[in-house]
């Protein structure tokens, strides 16, 4: 009995130490890493393309796929509503905020990035319209393909994406061409 009691006490001490290690060291460390990762996902220059590869779809009609995809793209913290036009293969996203609040430079860069991402992943998506309070931006597949690559889906791996998409977005002149 006494031996077993000692063993129980040792186990309880191990349990308390393990609990404290997990709760006060591992979880805060993981949370900090996750917060840093999430912050990077909200910026088109640091976004991780591998985070959205599972949303590849042949058709624009899958509403939950569209909503989940834009939850993992930059501007994901801005509340939004979707409208799908499956006949014309158009997607409209209404962001419920103003350009001024979010930051015009960021919005311009992120919308280009989101459009390339969505068109690379959704095969029959022809056009995306972004609506903000007081501003509307339209991106067509033709325009995106001319600026990046005629086979957008071939860009969908980390190295190619960094080289042919993200690196171009550092250039503000390149981004501003979409808004002329």
């Amino acid at each position: 009995m006494d031996k077993r009691n000692k063993l129980i006490i040792v186990l309880l001490i191990i349990g308390v130490l393990a609990f404290c290690t997990v709760q006060f060291i591992i979880i805060p460390h993981n949370k900090a890493k996750q917060d840093e990762y999430n912050a990077r996902q909200n910026d088109s220059l640091t976004h991780d393309i591998e985070n959205i590869l599972s949303y590849k779809s042949a058709y624009i009609g899958d509403a939950s796929n569209n909503a989940n995809l834009f939850t993992r793209l930059p501007l994901n913290s801005v509340p939004r509503k979707f409208k799908i036009d499956p006949d014309d293969c158009f997607l409209t996203i209404y962001y419920l905020d103003t350009l001024r609040n979010i930051g015009e430079t960021k919005v311009h860069r992120d919308l280009v990035y989101n459009s390339v991402s969505a068109m690379a992943l959704i095969d029959n998506l022809k056009q995306i319209t972004y609506g903000f309070s007081g501003a509307t931006f339209i991106f067509t597949r033709e325009e995106i393909e001319n600026s990046f690559d005629h086979d957008l889906s071939s860009l969908l791996n980390k190295e190619t994406w960094n080289e042919k998409v993200q690196s171009k977005l550092h250039d503000s002149d390149f981004v501003s061409r979409f808004y002329e």
Partner: peptide
Amino acid sequence: SVLWILSIPTI
């Protein structure tokens, strides 16, 4: 107690 210890990593 062993089960509790084994459950801690799942947190």
